[in-house]
Structure formats: structure tokens, C-alpha cells
Design a protein around this nucleic acid. Structure first.
Length: 946
RNA sequence: GCCGGUGUGGUGGAAUUGGUAGACACGUUGGAUUCAAAAUCCAAUGUCAGCAAUGACGUGGGGGUUCGAGUCCCCCCACCGGUACCA
């Protein structure tokens, strides 16, 4: 009997829902296990075949864990706030709430078709007021806390106020951007507004003016990772720098803990490296240089204090506050010209030509504290205001950028490190021997750094300091479709709203266009903005807000009194396995860790890290097919693709992959039929001419009326699967053609889960055949026929070999090899003609995580109670695997020449003796000395001859 | 530039972590079944030489360690990803 997948899938899909098969309880005697997928943004394009890759892997894993006796939490939800829905709204007038809801329904339908075991009763949507109530609440919590350096954790701001009242800033060891100190009396004498300003320097959520990535095209501020080469990732609009007052989260307070926490979690080393680089810890010296003829001093940060005797000039960032004060009269014009130039430069310009060296001399001099030499002070774009102190001592002999600058402006270069003992080392390497450096001469660089740091501290001109690249996270967006801030301003002073006033619901409006001055569209909703207590904040939170804690809400999604109950949090604790793409390596994964550590500090979550183990699935890419176009004045001429002619093409027009024959292959082309579809799809090309592969040229009118067979070659490229390339493959289509189980198996069989690869269906027949063969084991002459006879040793060995391998491989997330083991087993059983229950029943459970529909059907045909997914994964037993003999490869000098079977228990020396006697071996060792014989039990025999 | 990763048949990919390279699939070729096709089944399939037995070569390239290297070490090349004036 043929496996009728559509009937079987429809039947069980319904039954699973009716019986709430995948519903998970927070109360269980079983140990907990939490398997999480990165929740998707529900885009209008729907799911393509790339999205489910990770979901299938985590689903197999969850099902396996369930069968292995765990209470498994495996939820799904939607990251539903964000820019695309808002842009869509601006373009079409459809409200984001509406389009988002429609998209989510579509996603859920597509997901259901693939047979995932999500507990949908726990679904979360970040745009749901019942959800973002708690996003807002956590924000208020951040606002009400500061970071205490004595206890190394977040503490209530009221504690800080008490300390200030008791002893002023002397009393306070806190992470802060506050540079002033106050006595308790001074503190008490301040106006409340002034006090508020002071506290802002401590709060973990605070407002400050900052340069932000402003995108006029989208009317919003963008995060660094939403920008590519100076243009917005969405829409490709230019991005510039703009000063705005915004909300920030003081993530820098947690820099060290975010760094050290990486050591205790099971993530890939590449991902940890990305986060480490992002945090960017560097150790160095912070030191002060006196400025000649001024009572102000210049503060710099350097990781190479040892090279101070080679510091022949200083550079300030153009925005540095000292620039105006120290510029001399003669240099005023030069400096103001340069500043004008800098102001015309957008972020994009700065990024695109980093090779170009620019700068100007202030006319001022600093003094080297160790030899009292005068050091000219310059300003230059290459020094950034927001890293370190915005000022450097430049050592052209030992830094490439300084060297380029010195060369261009003809500044002095003094060699201070002799690298002759370290050939091939670069300027950046901390190697060499100090020269021309007074008391450091003759020291190796690392020793010199050490000694100089001491000297700096002894002299009282600076201190050893740790610097981080990481900045506080900008937390405001000037757009509509996001969480409103629970903030009201009175006389310009913000205060947060209490839990009883939450959620602050996003008001309805149909006018979500950006405003000209950059304010959020919410500012137009006047009766919402005005409240009895003051004016509301009209910015909204960024998408990372809702995604920073969603995994906690799954634990207790309906709770109205807390984001999750204590008992739920203590039971589920953290995510055991998190599966998702590496595109979230920084933003989402870093902010989640930050929120989690904060919630741990404040006693709301029991763990330090949210995600114990992380699996990065690769991307399934698309194949993009292009047809070359040559413009002849107004006329369009399409030509058959030829790599050698590439330079002559005016444009490459993406062609819908459905029209292309053998797409993704070197011989991809449009046949006459394909070309017909192409022209019907893009009627503007009806007037075009076509030159086919043989060089024959004709107009479309002639070609179509003659119905001539022709071949237009297309260019295949691997790239994103995207609407814009007309190469999106919908999982529904694949599921419709082959069934969900085949689709699941196929995506897993494609290769290692973490690898990226283009989608192609070449191999899908193979796994489909496996499904049909598996099914076929249970049938004879079109009838379900399973024997109750006892299994043979051979059959048991085959089964248990597979059980062992499949269990091991699932634990390793190596699903392609698990499937191969299942295939081998089924092929063997088929050969043996095995249809015994004793074998097929455990086999059915084994494939259940991979092929949930077919296994459920077979399970019920076997006469078992619902459901196969609630039974136990069969244990393999070693006793069935034992071998009484092993086929040894016999090698001469490491090359296999023959093989021979020996009993597994045969001692080494007997094998040696016997192996030498083999005729085939004799042939090779004849006339030579046998120097050595190596026998590795159950592995191989190697005979060394000379 | 720096950091991370990858490189194995015509293709996707295996390889017990130093021990029979190419499992499992796809594709291709030949055969069986069929009126025919689909489906199914059987066989062959790394390259070169040879009718064959067989032999040589073979995991991006070059060197090394080892009885033995896809796996470890050194140098180089190519591709992919991240990041970038970070002092």
C-alpha cells in the first residue's frame, strides 16, 4: 500500500490539536528541558524553505528529549514590532497591527504544515499589550536602578539617594558618567531638577544627547547593524550623524560580566569571539599631559605607554571639547576650515575613505612628562570622540595610522622599538626591544609597558585603565510600530509610570509617516501625548526590547501579576538549547544577556546566563537567475548569457526561477516555454529582441508567432532567497508535493546544520524513497502485515546499531548522519525481509522525531495507544552489537594490501604470526627485512619492512 | 588589514578524533519487470594504465612529524562570514 501522506498528515494534525498533545505543564516529576527557536519576524513574504531549517532541528531534538523522559518546553512566538510593517503601512495604508496579524496567521499555518511540536498555548507576540506591559515594566526597573561597584550588581536608585544624603559622592562606588563630586550638603541643597540630572548619570536607563545614525529616508534612528556601508539596510537610504536626546541603556556597566560570562556557556567559539570583539576590552594607561601655557591638561588613553618617548605629536578628535580652548590665534582659520570640512562629511564618507589622512594643527603644545619635550597638538578625523578619551599620543614609529599622518604632515618620527630580533613582526605586535627611551632602553616591550605603567602611577600623572569598545545601547526609535515608553515629562523631567498604569498602550493612528523634524509619528496623537501629569514620551522602543526577554514569558505566558511567576522561573530556569542564525550574534544575544543579568541582580531570575547552549544554523540560500540585457538606445535586446561577454551587458535582469530550466546548474537556461512565461510576466519586454545561444537574433513577435524552439542561457548565482530575486521557494509547495516528513528529512539530510548552502531539490527523491521503503516494511501484498516472530541476531544487530548511532547523533545535532544510519538500517532490514514487530516497533519510535506523521500512523496501525510521541525512546543494548570477529586490514608500510578476519579475542602475537604467513603478505615482504609489526586490536595490522 | 571558518569523487556530504578515504544519498551507465511509462528491484560508478589479475596516483598547494596523516605542526593559495581609523 502506498503511503498517502496528505491523508495521514491531515488526520494527525487535527488529532494533535484536539488532544493537546504538545501542551506542556509547569508541574512535572520529570526533569525540565527548554529548547528554544529564535522567534521570527512575521514578514509579508511568509516563510521560505530557509526558515524551517533550525526549527526542524530543534523540533527533532525536542521530540527526542521528550521520548527520553524530559518535560520539554518548546514554544514559538513572534517578534512582531518593527520597521518593515511600518514601511508597508506607509506604502499601502494598511495598519501595522492588521498586516502583522495577517502575517502571523500565515506563518502559523505554514509552521503547522511541517508538523512542529510547539505548545501554541504559550505563544507570545511582542506587539501584544499583555506582553509589552512587562517590556515596559522591565524598562521602568532599569530606570529605577543603578550599578553598584562595591556589590558589583544593580541596586535601587533609592539606595543611591540615601548614600548621597549620608555622605555625598564620596560615599558612592557606582558605575557612572558623572564627573563631578558633591558633599552631602551640596546634594541636599540642589533643586530636584538638578538632583534628577545627577541621578541620570547613574541610572541604567537614562537620557543623553548623542550622535545617532539618523536616516532621513526612513525618518528614524538606526542601530549600527541596520546600516550597510553608510546606507540603511532596509530601503538603502543614506544615513548621517545627528545629535538627538535619546534613551540609553547603560550596558557598559555590565561589560566585564558580559565578557566573563562567555566562559561558562556552550556557544561556538566564533560566536564568542564576535561578542568579545564587540565588547572590545583593552588594557592600557590613562594619562594626563600638561598643555603649554594653559592650566588645562589633556587626557589620553593608550595601550602602549612604553612608546611615550616616540610620541612626537598628539591628536584630538575634531569634536573634542578642548579644541576651541587651545587653538592659537594663528591657527584659528586652519582649524575652523578643517572643522567645516569635517561637518560636511557624513558617516558614510568617513567609512568609505579611511585611507585618506586629514587633519589640522591647533598651534598648541603638550609637554611630555618624562623628558619635557614639546609635543604639537593636532586634530584629525581618525581619532574618534566616543572611544577612550577622544585624544591620543601619536607614535608614528610604532603605529601605522600615526605613521601615515606624520608622513603626510611632515612630523617628526622617532624610533623607539627595535624589532630587528623579530623579523616579520608588524608595528601592531607588542614585540621588540626599547631604544631611545631613557630608563626603558634595553627592555622587552611587555616589560617596558609594565615599568612605564608603574612610573605613570608613581608620578601621579595617570593610572592603569581598562577600556571597552562597547557603548551604551541607544534605546529610542522615532517611529510608530514599537513599544511606547512608560514615561511622562513634567517640566522636562521624566518619570516612569507605575505597574498599575501599565501597559501604556500604543494609541491607534492611521498617520504613521515620519515627521519632518524627526519626531515619532506618535507626537501627532495629541490627546494621547497630553496627560494630567505631563507630556508623554513619543519615541518608541527598538525591536531588541521585546526580544530581550521573550524566552522568560514562555515559561508563564498568561500571568497578569508578573512577567512570569517565581515558581515557573525556578522550574524552567534557563534555555538549555537555543537554535538560531548567527545574524543575531551581537544585538539580540548581547542585549538578552544584559537584561538577564540585570533581572538576576534584582532577584527576578535565578540564573546568570539565559542561554546555556547555542546552535547556529546555517542559511539556506537561493539561486538567483539573471538574463543579460543590452540597451540599444531605446531598444531592449536580451542575449543568451556568455561569461566572456559579461562586460558588454547593460543590465542583468533577475528572472523568476520557475521559468528557468535546470536552475542553479551551469546549463541553466530559458527554453521557448520559459521565455514565453518570462515575457508574459514582464509585458514591457514584448517589444524586445532576443539573441539565442546560437547567435540568432529575432524580435519577440516573430519568435512567439513561429513558436521556434530556442535556448537563452541564464547566469546562476548563489544569494539571498528574497522576493526581489523571484527565487523564494515556499515550504508549502515542497510539503504538498512530497509530504512534511520528507521535507523535514530532506532539510536535515542536506548537510551539517551549521552550514549554509543553496536550496536545490536534487536529492529529495532519496529521502522520499527512504520514507516509502520504511512504510513498505510494514506491508505485504498491499496489506498491513507484521509478524510476531522472534527477531534474529542479525536483525537485532541492525536495529541496535541504528539506535546507538541515532541517539548519539541527535545529541550532537548531527542529523544528516543520523538519517544515514536510519537508511542503512532500513536497507538491511529490507534485504533480510524483516517485518517483525520486535524490530519495527522500536524502529518506529526511533524515526518519530524525524518523521512525526508517518511514525504516528504506523504506531497506530501496530495497535498502540495514542501517541508514539509520548512513549520512550528505545535503548540500544551493547550485547547485540558485539562482534566475534573483526576484519583486519593488513597494511605493508601503511598501505592496505589485503584484509583478513580474526576472532575479536585473538591475542596480538598470534595475529602477528598469522598475518606474516598470508600469501599476499609474503609477496610484499619477500627479500626485505620485517622491522616491526603493529597490531591495534579491532583496528588494523601494519607490517613495516625495509 | 585584523578575527573566525571552510577547502574530500560529476554533486550534497561521511570518516570511530592519528588507524581500511569516499559511508549515506543524488546523478550517470547497464540490466530486470512492463504493451509502454511511472514506480520498484539488481549491478557498476574516485582518476590514470591494462582485456584482465593488478598497479600507480588520490582529501586546495608545498614541506615536516609518525609504523601510519583528510585528521597533528610550519609555509602558501582560494573561497565564505564577521569587523574595521578602537589608540
Amino acid at each position: 500500500m502506498k503511503y498517502d501522506f496528505s491523508a495521514v498528515e491531515a488526520k494527525w494534525k487535527k488529532k494533535w490539536i484536539d488532544e493537546e498533545l504538545y501542551k506542556v505543564s509547569n508541574e512535572s516529576d520529570k526533569p525540565k528541558f527548554y529548547v528554544l527557536d529564535m522567534f521570527p519576524y512575521p514578514s509579508g513574504a511568509g516563510l521560505h524553505v530557509g526558515h524551517p531549517l533550525g526549527y526542524i532541528a530543534s523540533d527533532i531534538f525536542s521530540r527526542y528529549k521528550r521520548l527520553s523522559g524530559y518535560n520539554v518546553l518548546h514554544p514559538m512566538g513572534f517578534d512582531a514590532f518593527g520597521l518593515p510593517a511600518e514601511e508597508y503601512a506607509i506604502a499601502t495604508g494598511v495598519h501595522p497591527a492588521k498586516s502583522t496579524a495577517v502575517n502571523i496567521e500565515r506563518y502559523k499555518e505554514q509552521l503547522a504544515n511541517i508538523g512542529f511540536s510547539y505548545d501554541w498555548s504559550r505563544e507570545v507576540r511582542t506587539c501584544d499589550p499583555a506582553y509589552y506591559k512587562w517590556t515596559q515594566w522591565i524598562f521602568t526597573l532599569l530606570f529605577e536602578h543603578y550599578y553598584d561597584l562595591d556589590e558589583n550588581k544593580a541596586k535601587p536608585i533609592s539606595d543611591l539617594v540615601a548614600k548621597l544624603e549620608a555622605g555625598g559622592t564620596k560615599n558612592v562606588e557606582a558605575f557612572t558618567s558623572n564627573e563631578q563630586s558633591y558633599s552631602d550638603a551640596e546634594w541636599k541643597a540642589m533643586e530636584s531638577k538638578e538632583q534628577f540630572e545627577v541621578l541620570s548619570h547613574y541610572r541604567l536607563a537614562y537620557r543623553k544627547v548623542g550622535f545617532v545614525n539618523w536616516c532621513p529616508g526612513l525618518g528614524t534612528v538606526l542601530a549600527n547593524d541596520q546600516i550597510k556601508d553608510g546606507f540603511s539596510e532596509r530601503g538603502g537610504h543614506p544615513v548621517e550623524r545627528k545629535a538627538m536626546t535619546q534613551w540609553y541603556l547603560r550596558t557598559t556597566a555590565y561589560a566585564e560580566r558580559l565578557l566573563s560570562g562567555l566562559e561558562n556557556i556552550d556557544w561556538t567559539s566564533s560566536l564568542k569571539t564576535i561578542q568579545r570583539n564587540w565588547i572590545g576590552k583593552s588594557k592600557g594607561a590613562q594619562m594626563f599631559f600638561e598643555i603649554e601655557g594653559s592650566n588645562r591638561s589633556l587626557e589620553i588613553f593608550t595601550t602602549r605607554p612604553d612608546t611615550i618617548f616616540g610620541a612626537t605629536y598628539m591628536v584630538l578628535a575634531p569634536e573634542h571639547p578642548l579644541v576651541e580652548a587651545i587653538t592659537t590665534a594663528d591657527q584659528k582659520d586652519a582649524i575652523s576650515d578643517y572643522l567645516k570640512y569635517v561637518n560636511t562629511r557624513t558617516e558614510r564618507d568617513r567609512m568609505s575613505d579611511v585611507k585618506e589622512v586629514t587633519g589640522a594643527f591647533t598651534g598648541a603644545y603638550a609637554v611630555n612628562p618624562f623628558n619635557n619635550k614639546r609635543i604639537p597638538i593636532w586634530i584629525g578625523e581618525y581619532v574618534l570622540m566616543d572611544y577612550g578619551t577622544g585624544a591620543i599620543m601619536a607614535v608614528p614609529s610604532d603605529d601605522d595610522r600615526d605613521h601615515a599622518f606624520a608622513t603626510k604632515f611632515d612630523l617628526e618620527i622617532v624610533e623607539v622599538v627595535d624589532k630587528s630580533d623579530f623579523p616579520g613582526s608588524t608595528k601592531a605586535d607588542k614585540t621588540g626591544v626599547m631604544i631611545n627611551s631613557d630608563f626603558l632602553d634595553g627592555l622587552q616591550v611587555p616589560e617596558a609597558i609594565e615599568k612605564m605603567c608603574q612610573a605613570i602611577e608613581e608620578k601621579g600623572i595617570g593610572a592603569v585603565k581598562i577600556n571597552y569598545k562597547m557603548r551604551d545601547a541607544g534605546f529610542s526609535r522615532q517611529r510608530y510600530w514599537g513599544e511606547p515608553f512608560p514615561v511622562v515629562y513634567k517640566d522636562g523631567v521624566p518619570s516612569v509610570q507605575g505597574l498599575s498604569e501599565l501597559p501604556v498602550e500604543l494609541p491607534h493612528t492611521d498617520d504613521f509617516k515620519p515627521t519632518a523634524d524627526g519626531q515619532s509619528p506618535l507626537s501627532r496623537v495629541e490627546d494621547w501625548v497630553q496627560t494630567e501629569d505631563g507630556i508623554r514620551e513619543t519615541d518608541t522602543m527598538p525591536a531588541v526590547a521585546g526580544s530581550s526577554w521573550y524566552f522568560l514569558r514562555y515559561m508563564d505566558p498568561q500571568n497578569q501579576k508578573a512577567f512570569a511567576s517565581k515558581s515557573a522561573l525556578n522550574y524552567w530556569k534557563d534555555v538549555d538549547v537555543y537554535v538560531g542564525g548567527s545574524e543575531h550574534a551581537v544585538a539580540h544575544l548581547l542585549y538578552s544577556r544584559f537584561w538577564h543579568k540585570f533581572l538576576n541582580d534584582t532577584g527576578y531570575v535565578p540564573t546568570q546566563e539565559p542561554f546555556k547552549k547555542l546552535i547556529n544554523q546555517g542559511m539556506i540560500q537561493g539561486v538567483i537567475e539573471y538574463l543579460p540585457l543590452i540597451k540599444e538606445g531605446e531598444n531592449n535586446v536580451f542575449v543568451s548569457y556568455n561569461q566572456d561577454d559579461e562586460e558588454q551587458y547593460s543590465a542583468m535582469i533577475p528572472v523568476h526561477i520557475d521559468f528557468v530550466s535546470s536552475y542553479g546548474n551551469p546549463d541553466s537556461h530559458l527554453s521557448f516555454e520559459g521565455l514565453k512565461k518570462f515575457v508574459e510576466w514582464r509585458p514591457e519586454y514584448k517589444q524586445a529582441s532576443f539573441v539565442d545561444a546560437s547567435g540568432h537574433r529575432d524580435s519577440w513577435n516573430n519568435i512567439s508567432s513561429a513558436g521556434k524552439p530556442l535556448e537563452m542561457r541564464t547566469k546562476s548565482e548563489v544569494g539571498k532567497m528574497s522576493k526581489r530575486y523571484y527565487n523564494v521557494v515556499n515550504p508549502d509547495d515542497v510539503v504538498g508535493k512530497y509530504g512534511a516528513d520528507t521535507f523535514r528529512l530532506y532539510e536535515m539530510f542536506l548537510g551539517p546544520i551549521e552550514q549554509s548552502k543553496p536550496w536545490d531539490t536534487q536529492g529529495i527523491e532519496g529521502v522520499n524513497k527512504f520514507i516509502r521503503r520504511f512504510w513498505g516494511l510494514f506491508f505485504q501484498n498491499e496489506k498491513f502485515a507484521v509478524s510476531e516472530a522472534e527477531a534474529t541476531e542479525q536483525e537485532l544487530k541492525s536495529l541496535h546499531l541504528a539506535l546507538k548511532k541515532v541517539a548519539e547523533d541527535i545529541e550532537k545535532f548531527s542529523f544528516n548522519t543520523a538519517i544515514s544510519a536510519m537508511m542503512i538500517c532500513v536497507n538491511e532490514l529490507k534485504k533480510m525481509g524483516c517485518n517483525k514487530r520486535a524490530i519495527l516497533e522500536p524502529l518506529t519510535v526511533m524515526v518519530a522525531p524525524f518523521a512525526p506523521f508517518m511514525s504516528e500512523e504506523l504506531w497506530s496501525l501496530l495497535g498502540n495507544a495514542f501517541s508514539v510521541h509520548t512513549t520512550s525512546f528505545p535503548h540500544f543494548e551493547e550485547k547485540y552489537l558485539s562482534q566475534d570477529s573483526f576484519e583486519y586490514p593488513i597494511c605493508i608500510n601503511g598501505k592496505k594490501r589485503t584484509t583478513k578476519a580474526y576472532p575479536a579475542t585473538m591475542p596480538k602475537d598470534e595475529i602477528e604470526k598469522d598475518a606474516l604467513a598470508i600469501e599476499e603478505v609474503q609477496k610484499w615482504i619477500e627479500g626485505k627485512n620485517v622491522a616491526k609489526i603493529i597490531v591495534v586490536p579491532q583496528r588494523m595490522v601494519n607490517i613495516v619492512v625495509k
